[in-house]
Design a protein around this nucleic acid. Structure first.
Length: 722
DNA sequence: AGCACGCCGACT
DNA sequence: GTCGGCGTGCTC
C-alpha cells in the first residue's frame, strides 16, 4: 500500500510555526529545500521533517518543486537554528533563511548549480566499452571519471568535453554528483617559536577532548593569533576543519592573508556579507562538502555546514559586532559556543578585554582560562597610559596645553600621533550662541550633525539632510557655531594648530568610498600622515608601526551612561586604542583627557589591569542583580504616538502577570523618536533562563497571532544596548 | 513579510 | 465615474 508522504517546512515568514505540505513525487531529505505555494506566493523553505502522518490542518497543499541545488543542512546546523529560534523567540523560518546563502532562499534554482557539480562514472568499464577505441581523449576522460570530476577539470581535458559528459549522462553511463569530499591536507609553513604561556595555551587546546570552552585572555600584542594558528595546525593535521569567527568584515582581509601565508595550499574559505552571491555559495559548499579546511568569517559564518569540524575559534569575543543589531538579534559568539557543544569539539574565545559573561564563566570554572601576560612580539612594550585632568586646564579648541606639548614633541621626533574621538553621544552640532538654539532632527530626538565639507546638517539616525542655515531659525543671529568636537572639527583645528603636519581623518564618512580605507592605511604605513584623527574603527585590528602617541579626547562621555554596559565597552575600546601605540620596539604613550581623573574606572585602565576592572564590575552586577547574574530581554515597541507604544508595552506586561518574570515600567527609549516613530521599551527580567524563555515564547506567539495595530514590536534577548 | 480585499478622496 | 490611499487579515 502506498502511504502518503508529508513534509514540514520552515518558511521565511514572521510566524513562529512551520507549515506542512503533501509530497506527491520525488525524494527530499530533512535539511534540503523545497519550493512551495504559500498564499498567493511561491516560497522556498527548509524541510524539517518528512513523515506519513496526516497533518491536522484545514487546507493542505502540495510541494511545488525540489530544486536539489542545496545539500541538506547537517543535523547540528538544524539543531543550532532551532535553538536560536527558541532562545531569541524569533520565527524559525527567518532563522533558517539567515543561516543559508541568499541564492538558496530563491524559488528559482541557483544558476551556478551545474558548474558546481561533479561527474562520475559508476562503471568505468561499461563507459569504455561504449567508446570508440580510437577516441583517445574520450577514453582518457572516461578513466579519470572513476573519481568524481569537477566541471573545470572536465573542461581541461577538451573544449567540448562537457558535451560528451552530457551524452554519457543521458545514456546513464555517467551520473551527476557533489564534488568529492577530500580536503587537502598540507603542512603549515614554519611557525615562530612560542613563549611559555603561548605554548601552554596551544597545548591546552590540543589536549582538549570533546566540548571544552576556553577563554584565551591576552593583552594586545601577546600573540593570540599565533595561538589560534598553531591550534588550527594541529586540528588540520588531525584532518579536521576549523571555524574561525572574526568581528568585522574590515578585519577579514588581514587575518585571511596571515592564514594563507601560514597554510599555503590549504583551501581557506572566507565568508562575510560583502561577498557576491555566487562566491558565498561556492565557499559555503566547499565548507559543507569538507573540501575547505579552514572557514574564516563574520557572524553569519557560525551557521556554515562543516562535516569534519574539529575546532571553533572566536577572535575578539567581546566585540559588539558579534551581535546582530536588527531583525534576528542573535549573538554569534554564543551561537558558536552552542555549536561547539552540539558537535562536541573545543571552542576557543580570545580577547584582551573579555566580555563580562565570558569572564564570569571563566571565574566560575565553566570556561578554562588561558592567560597570556607577556608581549610576544620581541621588544614590544606595553603603552604608558596617562590621565590628563582637564577640569582646571587651559584648553585650546578642546586640547589641553599638556597634550599639545606632547604632540609637538612627538611630531618633532617624526613620530605619528593618533587623536581618538569617542563619538558615542558626542557629535558636532550647530548651535546659536545668542539664544541657545541647537540643530535637531524633525523626525528623531537626535541632533543634526554638522558636515562641514558638504556644508550640510545630517541626522545620523534617519538620514534627514538639510543645508546649513545662514542664520539662527529662532532669533536670526548670524553667528552659528559648532558645539563639541566631531572628527571633521578636530581635523580642522589640528590643521590650524599644526600647519606643517599632514592630518588624515579616518572615519565612516572619509572611508565610504570603496578602497578609500586601504589607501589611507597605505599612507599611514608609508609615513605620509603625521596626525590621524579617527573614531571606533581606528581602534580595531590595524597596526600602525610609526604610532607613538595616542590622544583620547572625550572618554568621559561613556562613564555616566544609563546603560550598565557602557563602562565595559569604554574600557575595551580605550585599551584597544591604547594598544595601537608602541608596537614596533618603541614604547607608546597614551594620553587620556578627563574631567574625572579620580574615577576608579581610570585606575584599572591606567594600570592596564582588565582583571581588576572585570572583577569589580562583576561584584557590582551581582549585587544589583544585573546580567550576567540575571536573564534579561527587552520588548521594544515603535508607534506613531508614544502613548500607543507605551500602551502596547503595558498590555504585554499584563499578559505576563502570572509568570515568574519581572516586567519593568515601560520607558521611552534613549532615542525616543526615530524617523518619525516614537520608541519605547520595557525590560523583562528573571533570575533564571527557563521562566524568561517561557514568557518570551508566550509573547511572541500571542502577537504573531494577533498583531497589534499601528505598533511595530521586537524582542531583544540578552540586550547589549539601551 | 507579502499580497490580497476593502471601503473613502482627488483626478483623466 | 475610477485610480489609489493604506487598514486588517491570512498564509499548510
Amino acid at each position: 500500500m502506498l502511504t502518503e508522504r508529508y513534509v514540514t517546512v520552515a518558511l521565511d515568514v514572521p510566524l513562529p510555526q512551520c507549515f506542512d505540505y503533501l509530497l506527491l513525487q520525488g525524494e527530499v531529505a530533512v535539511g534540503e529545500r523545497v519550493v512551495v505555494p504559500f498564499g498567493r506566493q511561491t516560497l522556498s523553505g527548509v524541510v524539517l521533517a518528512v513523515h506519513g502522518e496526516t497533518p491536522q490542518v484545514a487546507k493542505l497543499r502540495a510541494v511545488e518543486s525540489i530544486p536539489g541545488d542545496m545539500p541538506a543542512l547537517p543535523s547540528d546546523v538544524i539543531a543550532l537554528c532551532r535553538f536560536c529560534a527558541d532562545y531569541y523567540a524569533y520565527p524559525i523560518g527567518a532563522v533558517f533563511a539567515a543561516a543559508i546563502p541568499g541564492a538558496f532562499r530563491q524559488a528559482q534554482p541557483w544558476p551556478g548549480f551545474e558548474a558546481a557539480m561533479a561527474y562520475v562514472a559508476p562503471d568505468v568499464e561499461a563507459l569504455l566499452a561504449a567508446l570508440s577505441p580510437r577516441a583517445h581523449k574520450q577514453r582518457a576522460l572516461a578513466l579519470q571519471l572513476a573519481q568524481p570530476l569537477a566541471v573545470e577539470a572536465i573542461r581541461a581535458v577538451a573544449g567540448d568535453a562537457m558535451r560528451w559528459v552530457r551524452d554519457w549522462q543521458e545514456s546513464g553511463l555517467v551520473v551527476q554528483t557533489r564534488q568529492s569530499a577530500v580536503a587537502l591536507q598540507c603542512a603549515p609553513s614554519a611557525s615562530p617559536a612560542l613563549n611559555d604561556e603561548q605554548a601552554a595555551a596551544v597545548a591546552a587546546v590540543n589536549a582538549a577532548q570533546g566540548y571544552s570552552p576556553m577563554l584565551l585572555y591576552g593583552i594586545t600584542g601577546s600573540g593570540k593569533t599565533e595561538v589560534y594558528l598553531q591550534a588550527i595546525a594541529a586540528t588540520r593535521a588531525a584532518g579536521h576543519q576549523a571555524l574561525v569567527l572574526v568581528p568585522e568584515i574590515n578585519l577579514t582581509p588581514q587575518l585571511e592573508a596571515r592564514f594563507r601565508a601560514r597554510f599555503p595550499g590549504e583551501h581557506i574559505v572566507s565568508l562575510h556579507s560583502g561577498l557576491a552571491d555566487g562566491e558565498r555559495v561556492r565557499g559555503w559548499l566547499a565548507a559543507g562538502e569538507g573540501r575547505a579546511g579552514i572557514v574564516l568569517g563574520t557572524r553569519l559564518a557560525v551557521f556554515t555546514p562543516l562535516p569534519r569540524l574539529g575546532l571553533v575559534v572566536v577572535d575578539e569575543e567581546h566585540d559588539p559586532s558579534y551581535r546582530q543589531a536588527e531583525g534576528f538579534r542573535y549573538s554569534a559568539r554564543d551561537a558558536a559556543v552552542y555549536r561547539a557543544r552540539l558537535r562536541d569539539v573545543p571552542v576557543l574565545l580570545g580577547s584582551a578585554t573579555p566580555s563580562l559573561e565570558s569572564w564570569r564563566n571563566a571565574q566560575e570554572g565553566r570556561y578554562r582560562l588561558l592567560t597570556l601576560r607577556q608581549r610576544a612580539v620581541s621588544g614590544a612594550m606595553p603603552p604608558k597610559i596617562e590621565l590628563v585632568p582637564i577640569q582646571r586646564a587651559r584648553m585650546v579648541d578642546g586640547f589641553s596645553e599638556y597634550v599639545l606639548a606632547a604632540m609637538r614633541s612627538t611630531l618633532a621626533a617624526s613620530g605619528q600621533v593618533l587623536v581618538f574621538i569617542n563619538r558615542r553621544g558626542y557629535a558636532p552640532v550647530l548651535s546659536c550662541h545668542e539664544c541657545g538654539w541647537i540643530s535637531s532632527c524633525k523626525h528623531c530626538s537626535a541632533k543634526l550633525v554638522l558636515h562641514l565639507a558638504e556644508r550640510r546638517l545630517r541626522c545620523h539616525h534617519c538620514g534627514y539632510d538639510i543645508r546649513v542655515p545662514l542664520a539662527c531659525p529662532d532669533c536670526g543671529n548670524h553667528d552659528l557655531k559648532p558645539l563639541g568636537h566631531g572628527t571633521q572639527r578636530v581635523e580642522a583645528v589640528l590643521a590650524e594648530l599644526f600647519p606643517d603636519a599632514n592630518v588624515l581623518r579616518i572615519d565612516r564618512d572619509s572611508t565610504r568610498r570603496r578602497g578609500a580605507l586601504g589607501e589611507m592605511l597605505r599612507q599611514v604605513h608609508a609615513g605620509e600622515a603625521d596626525i590621524l584623527v579617527g573614531t571606533q574603527m581606528m581602534a580595531k585590528g590595524h597596526d600602525f608601526p610609526g604610532l607613538q602617541l595616542v590622544v583620547v579626547l572625550n572618554a568621559d562621555t561613556g562613564l555616566f551612561s544609563v546603560d550598565f554596559r557602557a563602562e565595559e565597552r569604554l574600557f575595551a575600546q580605550l585599551l584597544q586604542v591604547a594598544g595601537r601605540a608602541g608596537r614596533a620596539g618603541k614604547p607608546g604613550r597614551v594620553l587620556i583627557q578627563s574631567m574625572y581623573a579620580e574615577h576608579p574606572f581610570y585606575h584599572a585602565l591606567v594600570a592596564g589591569d582588565y582583571a581588576e576592572f572585570a572583577d569589580a564590575q562583576l561584584t557590582e552586577r551581582r549585587s544589583l542583580a544585573l546580567p550576567p547574574y540575571a536573564a534579561w530581554a527587552v520588548l521594544r515597541a515603535e508607534a506613531k504616538q508614544l502613548a500607543s507604544a507605551l500602551d502596547f508595552l503595558r498590555e504585554a506586561a499584563s499578559l505576563l502577570a502570572g509568570y515568574p518574570v519581572h516586567v519593568a515600567t515601560p520607558v521611552p527609549a534613549a532615542m525616543a523618536r526615530k524617523a518619525g516613530w516614537e520608541r519605547a521599551h520595557a525590560v523583562i527580567s528573571a533570575d533564571a533562563r527557563p521562566p524568561l524563555q517561557a514568557a518570551l515564547r508566550l509573547l511572541a506567539a500571542h502577537y504573531a497571532e494577533a498583531a497589534p495595530r499601528g505598533v511595530r514590536w521586537a524582542l531583544d534577548v540578552d540586550p547589549q544596548e539601551f
